[in-house]
Design a protein around this nucleic acid. Structure first.
Ligand code: MN
Ligand code: MN
Ligand code: ZN
Ligand code: ZN
Lengths: 156, 156
DNA sequence: GTTCTGTTGAGAATAGGTCTCAATAAGCCG
DNA sequence: CGGCTTATTGAGACCTATTCTCAACAGAAC
């Protein structure tokens, strides 16, 4: 009654494509599935090197691409220059609020949005494979800080 | 009973910031407001040069940023490497479907999504300034082409 | 016209990701 | 195990969209 783990999904996916389960590939899998939240490629690279895992940047990028193709990792730009990666658990999906002042990212789940998205795609003849919804604005903290500063500068 | 044009909004915005209405700035404004749909910075640059308007790349980028800050231009990545810009008419807002095979972009308007977005932002204490919703998938044409090819290769 | 200072142009710099290719090592077979 | 095929790796070159630098220029105010 065990259900298939992400690791099993990955190994099958690699085999189905005629690929090989190299040491680097599997270590990168473990690394990203042990991380919480969003990571960029360089952080994964450095974190693996720090642990004494020898791996090259190119290999990190190549295997991240593989994980994305496989559907186990999501790659997206969240307001910044570089791509961020996060592992995905099948059947779950969330979106992001991004503070344009401090770059803080808040995740949320909205079934309503997901339903609307499927509907819209269908209405335009699209077979939807994924979506990205990013709402950017100012978070509570930054809004507070901004108004304090405005008040202070107006005093002087 | 004239309502303010985008050009007027821009000029006021520039003045309010202590900026100047330079020839290059105003020509870029005209250029992007004469273009339809999405353009990248380099296309604007080349299109202006072609018309004999002398302008540098740096100036194009700097003034696009100004237009974005001013709220008259939207900058986003639509599946590709470079940013795309489009002029915005106040009060309107649309989102995008992107075909991951042919990069075709289809625009749509969904009041439901807009309302949900505002609600979600508020629920998390965000003051929403803008949003991006991108649904990527396979368009009708590409879906058709793909299934034809699959059939053909299975025959052989 | 003079002055002050925001803006421009040309090109260098940056950054993040991609490509190259010789060396390595999975996976398979006997 | 030992050899064979070929996918993958590592190191660094390469790419390219965007940002930065700084001296020359030109709006705007008076
Ligand atoms: Mn997330
Ligand atoms: Mn659009
Ligand atoms: Zn913030
Ligand atoms: Zn298509």
């Amino acid at each position: 009654m065990e259900h298939t783990t992400e690791r099993e999904i990955f190994e099958r996916y690699v085999h189905r494509r005629g690929g090989r389960l190299t040491a680097e590939r599997l270590r990168l899998f473990d690394e990203i599935f042990n991380q919480h939240g969003h990571v960029d490629a360089d952080r994964l690279y450095r974190s693996m090197r720090r642990q004494g895992r020898k791996i090259s940047r190119a290999t990190v990028y190549r295997n991240l691409e593989l994980l994305v193709d496989c559907g186990l990792v999501r790659r997206q730009r969240l307001g910044q220059r570089r791509y961020l990666y996060e592992h995905v658990h099948p059947g779950q999906s969330h979106d992001h609020l991004i503070c344009r002042m401090c770059d803080r990212v808040v995740e949320f789940v909205s079934p309503g949005i997901s339903a609307l998205q499927r509907e819209l795609a269908r209405a335009h003849g699209f077979d939807p494979t994924e979506h990205t919804l990013q709402i950017s604005g100012i978070c509570l903290d930054c809004a507070g800080r901004a108004s304090t500063e405005t008040a202070a500068s107006e005093e002087s």
